[in-house]
């Protein structure tokens, strides 16, 4: 317990300095929600613990590989049993695991708390696009379908690929910054999965059932994700794009949506 506690402690202090350097090339994307931040730190902690164990175990193995060679005149010992050692290397890992499970448990409970959202949005997976319904909160009643907007020519290579190749859509999801957004997922045909890495949110969308998850984005910006459950031919071509905007900009967007819907109805 002590050992793992200390390990966890030293790991956490490293994380604090490390998370500022977040690079999405070798690591998780830079987190913009508290959940994603916890996942990021949890992963870093795990990585450090595993790296320490790795160095220790394989340090011993490679020491042995280089020292205990026949060519170096090593003579084989004949020990082949030690109950003490066996018990020791059963018990110590158990304590290390408890040290890992503890912070993970807290995060799980935190992630599952979908209560009291400011806005509820339903994401429906179709083959192969996402549909969004704003069910509750400011913007209630808005609904649209979100398709991949990368032109076919870029995919086939007759045109240069744009910066957000395969991660851009015609109608992005817009949410206000700092507000708790609850995402309900469902699907109309096969299982899809709604994932925005920067939010630490991934939830399967299952036909005939709803599932829920949530996020509260701390920073304005454009965040991109993909469908991550194999859903047929164009599984790779149904991205998710979320625009996190200020409260004012969000109200303007809602007004515009409502107006265009009214105009459409009038026609």
């Amino acid at each position: 317990m002590n050992l793992s506690g200390r390990l966890a402690g030293s790991g956490l202090s490293l994380i604090v300095s490390g998370s500022a350097l977040a690079q999405s090339r070798y690591n998780f994307q830079e987190p913009v929600t508290s959940v994603a931040e916890q996942l990021y730190d949890l992963h870093t902690l795990m990585l450090i613990i595993c790296a320490v164990i790795f160095v220790a175990v394989f340090g011993v193995m490679f020491w042995s590989v280089f020292k205990h060679r026949k060519s170096r005149g090593a003579v084989a010992a004949n020990f082949h049993e030690s109950t003490t050692v066996e018990i020791l290397w059963t018990i110590i890992p158990v304590f290390i695991l408890v040290g890992m499970a503890w912070p993970a448990t807290r995060t799980i409970l935190y992630m599952k708390d979908t209560s009291s959202p400011d806005i509820t949005i339903k994401a429906t997976g179709y083959q192969w696009k996402w549909g969004y319904d704003y069910l509750q909160g400011e913007g209630e009643g808005i609904r649209f379908v979100s398709n991949l907007s990368t032109p076919r020519e870029q995919i086939e290579g007759s045109e240069a690929k744009g910066e957000h190749y395969l991660l851009e859509v015609d109608n992005p999801v817009v949410v206000p910054v700092g507000k708790k957004v609850r995402i309900l997922t469902t699907a109309s045909d096969v299982i899809h999965s709604w994932w925005v890495p920067a939010f630490g949110v991934k939830q399967d969308a299952i036909p005939g059932f709803i599932r829920d998850t949530w996020f509260r984005a701390d920073r304005e910006g454009i965040y991109r994700g993909n469908c991550v459950e194999l859903c047929g031919k164009d599984h790779g071509y149904m991205p998710i794009e979320v625009h996190v905007v200020s409260a004012e900009a969000y109200s303007q967007w809602v007004a515009k949506q409502v107006a265009s819907k009214a105009a459409l109805a009038a026609n």
Partner: peptide
């Protein structure tokens, strides 16, 4: 800890 519930129906 449950404050919000969604009841959803799907017609098949």
């Amino acid at each position: 800890d449950v404050h919000t519930i969604t009841l959803s129906y799907t017609f098949f």
